[in-house]
Design a protein around this nucleic acid. Structure first.
Lengths: 95, 95
DNA sequence: GCAATATTTAGATATTTGTCTAAATATATA
DNA sequence: TATATATTTAGACAAATATCTAAATATTGC
């Protein structure tokens, strides 16, 4: 997992909202955009950041480009966080 | 939890390294700084961001100021991430 | 109280980032 | 093939951010 890219990606509220929209299933760029008051170009920038972090997958479907969550990376991230704080039986985090 | 502040705080590699250093227990600002090649002033800036996010606690101990992890917020963050991606029995993330 | 040590605050600067407009690319359809 | 729709790319710009130096504040010990 590209830790830095993932955290960077998660640091922006618009991007987190995009991910949230994708929870209920894959959506085209345009469908995602409906919920936001920014230009398609700005949206596309956010998509790029999310792709860099491998948080979303893309697939062209005809005229549209469809985005979907890559749950794997979320799990990795959550695991990493669990490792980052010390808990019982884990004094020092891990590794 | 101040979600935005937490993600912002985690987005910087130096800050994540600071948190990692604190895994093994509380340390003074100076002790933390030994591991990094930046000025005390810059370090202090990072401490502020981490405090804003409630990721660390501080306590003055005589001449020193001692930093320690606030594990609670880490747990909140990890939980939040788990909620953010859909999994079996949780189609839609939740809430 | 004064000097030394630890840390923070203030202010400046360079880089990064989120946004925009305009133009380019890709696909569908008349 | 021409036109419309969907999305991305390029380039510009303002706001946010990480860093620095210099100065301020807090504490200890002489």
């Amino acid at each position: 997992m590209k830790q830095q890219e993932v955290f960077k990606a998660m640091a922006d509220p618009t991007r987190r909202a995009i991910l949230k929209r994708l929870q209920s299933g894959a959506l085209s760029a345009g469908e995602i955009g409906e919920a936001f008051d920014i230009t398609p170009a700005s949206l596309s920038h956010h998509f790029n950041v999310l792709k860099q972090a491998d948080l979303v997958r893309t697939e062209r479907r005809g005229q549209y480009i469809v985005y979907s969550l890559n749950s794997t990376v979320f799990e990795d991230l959550a695991r990493m966080l669990m490792d980052l704080f010390p808990s019982k039986g884990n004094a020092g985090g891990k590794k």
